[in-house]
Design a binder for these strands. Structure first.
Lengths: 203, 203
DNA sequence: CCGTATCTATCGAACGATCGATAGGCAGAT
DNA sequence: ATCTGCCTATCGATCGTTCGATAGATACGG
């Protein structure tokens, strides 16, 4: 008596694996890692908990896969955006926009990455933090380039990146797909706000 | 054989209660609500877990007390800061500074308030969110005042507050007492960054 | 000043529930 | 006959909570 999910043969396994991933993301987003039981994840997919171990070696590993996949996609997205623009201002605008769009479109995953760092085992924590630092350096370099060329005025690039990251990552906390403001509008307002903050010129 | 904590008669109880509060804040800050066991909290204070129930009716209530006390103190601090300034720009500067200083000086408590909303029972969640909304309205009103008087240019006050809150609350995530930049310097940079972003004038 | 009752602050032991993880089996497709 | 995908059953550990007991301080009546 197996429920809704799968009949099973080759391809369906991939579907099941993705379903588990999706369910885990949603539940961890809602309740946190320690607040989410594997039984709840399995129930969401229509499986018994032990069946999850056919796809994932442990709960910790499941979280780690979410983090890895999400961060890798985010990094690639922002790198592509930066590469397309010519000057620091254009690069910064593109990077912020890409970051915000990503955090809105994949808000649950993005939020989990930010909120569940604490739940990682030491080795995993170190790996994720290292990747995050590489990611933040993308922005810091754009800021420093712009400052050298006189386009930006930033007293401290690292601090500015902290501010920017927190501000834009926050979109994943409150954004709702059919909210009062369109996503494009949100991205525009945020980008303008930060750029006006760092652009040279004016008092 | 009771350890370091208390000999017991009236006054010491207050000390014990405060110790439990402090230990809970620290552990929940580090490991999250669901990742923190009451046994760990008790162990930190040198008590048996059952003794905690002499001071707190439940784990959930302990979290709720942390939230209430912290939010109440934060609200009072920012309200005082706003009251002292005359014009919208001064009020905004004062409010941001107060918010940042609070989140740096009481970073563990402040972080717990932001990060553990999900761990609250529905009724508690509603209460805390209502208080948070009142708090954010303090900033929104200053922004709207300034916009009406032509000092600020904000396309959407609510969105600007979201950005500001995320940005400044983030200080509690990374701030360290003896870091590279002094707290005053951090507050200045953040305040300038946001104010340049919302001040009228310039392109 | 003495005995007795009450209060304060803590303990150790135990509760049922739930956790992540494992072992072994079984049905169906290849 | 094997492999794939899932099951049932169970493990030991740990969770939050409750309980009765108790040592020591305090208050009170004679």
């Amino acid at each position: 008596m197996q429920s809704a999910s799968a009949a099973a043969t080759g391809e369906p396994a991939r579907i099941t694996e993705q379903s588990i991933y999706n369910a885990a993301v949603r539940l961890i987003f809602e309740r946190g890692y320690h607040g989410t039981s594997l039984r709840a994840v399995a129930g969401e997919v229509g499986l018994q908990m032990s069946s999850l171990y056919y796809y994932f070696p442990s709960k910790q590993d499941l979280l780690m896969q979410i983090m890895r996949r999400t961060m890798s996609d985010l990094m690639a997205t922002v790198e592509r955006a930066i590469a397309k623009a010519a000057d620091p201002e254009g690069r910064l605008r593109a990077a912020i926009r890409a970051h915000i769009l990503f955090h809105a479109k994949r808000r649950e995953e993005a939020f989990v990455v930010d909120a569940e760092l604490r739940a990682l085992a030491p080795a995993n924590y170190a790996a994720v933090v290292a990747t995050r630092d590489r990611y933040e350096r993308l922005f810091a370099e754009v800021l420093r380039d712009g400052a050298e060329q006189g386009q930006f005025r930033v007293p401290d690039a690292k601090l500015a990146v902290f501010a920017l990251m927190a501000m834009c990552t926050g979109v994943a906390v409150w954004y709702r797909p059919h909210g009062r403001l369109s996503l494009e509008r949100v991205a525009d307002i945020y980008t303008d706000l930060f750029l006006r903050g760092v652009l040279a010129g004016g008092a």
